[in-house]
Amino acid sequence: MAKKKIRTSQEVNAGSMADIAFLLLIFFLVTTTIASDKGILNILPPKQDPDQPPPEVELNERNIFNILINANDQLLIEGEFRTTTEGLSNEIKSFILNFGNPDEDNLALYNGLPASLRALALRSPESSDYPGAGGAVVSIKTNRGTSYEIYLEVLDLVKKAYFEIYGERVGLTAEEYRALTGNTAAEVELQNRGKEGIPMAISIAEPDKTGS
């Protein structure tokens, strides 16, 4: 059977082509984002007044987690010589959450933590007293000859420890916690709940001048 074709018009209806083009235009307008600015955020300490020497902060040795990096990119972590940063993040986590000698407020903070984080608290008298600026400080000291890359690697691991704690407190992964933008009230609430009582106490010391 031969097919019967009826030739109606030879022209394709091009009226909707404009709509298709518009769709394309809008699609590109919406999806085109300029490469976003990402990085590790660091808040510098306020500037020093030459007339007023910085206040002497009395911190017990047990409350400071010392990380020293020399000009050969070798690490001295809590007095122990290392060449790699392996496992550093977990050590910092248990240092922050040690709760060796908490006061009442911090005891309440401890009781409010999820069980998985409470398990990290060894309550060792040799480690930090409580999380926070006066109780658990991570100190990073570099040399002028230290490479920027290893410094960032260490800073990255310290941040990782904090973000994992924050995330775990609110039931998110560290990744999800970092992705919170703070644009909505719910996200701000999550962010605040994560870091409440455990501020990031990272001290970056002036680098040594020797050996650069």
Partner: peptide, 24 residues
């Protein structure tokens, strides 16, 4: 190396621009 980076950090503290992001 960290030398120039810390010089920049020192100047930024002086300039009171304390939010610093290490682009990575």
């Amino acid at each position: 190396k960290m030398g120039p980076v810390s010089d920049i950090q020192f100047e930024l503290r002086e300039a009171d621009a304390r939010k610093l992001m290490y682009a990575t």
